[in-house]
Amino acid sequence: MNIPQELKYSKDHEWVKVEGNRVTIGITDYAQQQLGDVVFVELPEVGADLTVGGGFSVVESVKAVSDVYAPISGKVIEVNEALVDAPETVNQEPYDGGWIAVVEVADSSELNELLSSDDYEKLLAEEGDH
């Protein structure tokens, strides 16, 4: 399981890459493995306002439909159009080419609520115990 140290994570299995007041968001390696072959990504619209915890994208595998929840509040300033024709990138490169959206952060204090890579690894270990 790949959990890059430089990223932050949500309990809903999204990753967040922080660059100034902008963050890039995607789903984690664990999330893509759980979903299986991703065949469709519904992207948010550029300009959309996100509220932390709200659904903002949908990722579908052959068998499952899964909401992607906003790990942070803010405005969508860029979306990964490449996923329209190549949704499988989410499986192949969840932390690189599989990014979903770039968001301008509304409230930077929300960043403190996100998990470190160590904490996220612990969360996965706990989920694995079920």
Binding site: G36, D37, V62, K63
Partner: peptide, 9 residues
């Protein structure tokens, strides 16, 4: 099992 290596494969 819903899948082993992957549904598409």
């Amino acid at each position: 099992p819903v899948q082993y290596s992957g549904v598409i494969e």
